[in-house]
Design a protein around this nucleic acid. Sequence first.
DNA 1: GTCTATAGGGCGATAGAC
DNA 2: GTCTATCGCCCTATAGAC
Lengths: 188, 188
Amino acid sequence: MKSEERRELVLDAATQVFGESGYQGATTDAVARAAGVSQPYVVRMFGTKEALFLAVVQRALDKLLAAFRVELAAGDDPAECLGRAYVGLLADRGLLLSLMHAFALGTHPEIGALARRGMLEVYRMIREEAGLDADQAGGFLAHGMLINTVIAMRLGEADDPLASELLATVLSPESGRLAGLDETRLSS
Amino acid sequence: MKSEERRELVLDAATQVFGESGYQGATTDAVARAAGVSQPYVVRMFGTKEALFLAVVQRALDKLLAAFRVELAAGDDPAECLGRAYVGLLADRGLLLSLMHAFALGTHPEIGALARRGMLEVYRMIREEAGLDADQAGGFLAHGMLINTVIAMRLGEADDPLASELLATVLSPESGRLAGLDETRLSS
DNA sequence: GTCTATAGGGCGATAGAC
DNA sequence: GTCTATCGCCCTATAGAC
């Protein structure tokens, strides 16, 4: 299973690169360099750049849902559990950012379809498995999208007291259903 | 001032194209075709594709802030006014989507800097001019980011009852501080 | 001011050796 | 399975006519 490890290594690298630069902005060469392999090998492994991105997004969705289920299983308050799960996901910056880029490409035939399917599966899980009502679920997703945005735009690099206030508010447990987040996670 | 009209025409077209495909995904040729001019002319008018995108984003921010101020001036409840302002902005789909793509490129030297500056200016206005407290402002931005996301991913095209529920929840006045939104705006 | 023609560079993908 | 070499396309930007 050495080849399976190689594949995971490339997917990790691709997740980082796609998260930073987006689907069209990222190059297969940048992915290859980040993974320590040659550019043609990356293409050979997945066929096309598009197939590679789809694999990255699908894996990100799988990890997201898995992280939610792990926390929900060991938890009391579902909303608090989902918040905790988000903490772990923030450690892998590329994961949420790659998803965000996929969400932004709704007109792409395959990427858009996968993005919609993924978002609905997440919504279904926090509604049916976690048991949140529609308003709670919407609020949870809304705060998640804002967190994704402030991370993507690197708001922590802005030297402005209002930026600090916004970050603190977005990440504070009281602000929404996302408990347990602290600002130190954003500087990575 | 015929040339000024031409410039606005190209900026309108560019806003649509960048909103659909993102900064790297969009081509100056697509912008030119949408505007009915030649590709080299688009480049000549703005110098580079990057400068064109920056102009699009700056204009989008100006329009966003102007729309907020117009509604706030004639209004009672600030939160409700901001919600109404968002309705008008949704009519120009490319505007919010171009902003979203700019937010996603925080590592780009110029685009990232402009995105952070713009987001902070919006936050400053809803805090200081509209008078929302930090939690209200964060909630408003969060719901705005989720609305941007569901529009970008074309969730309305998903044939799923849960998709309808999510859309209805996100766009319903009770769900957040964004009053007056109706689902019909999303199909355009 | 606006076009046609085209240069120049980057990138995804392929061919083929090892 | 992984590499080096390279093709061919697309896209930004420039040159120059009108």
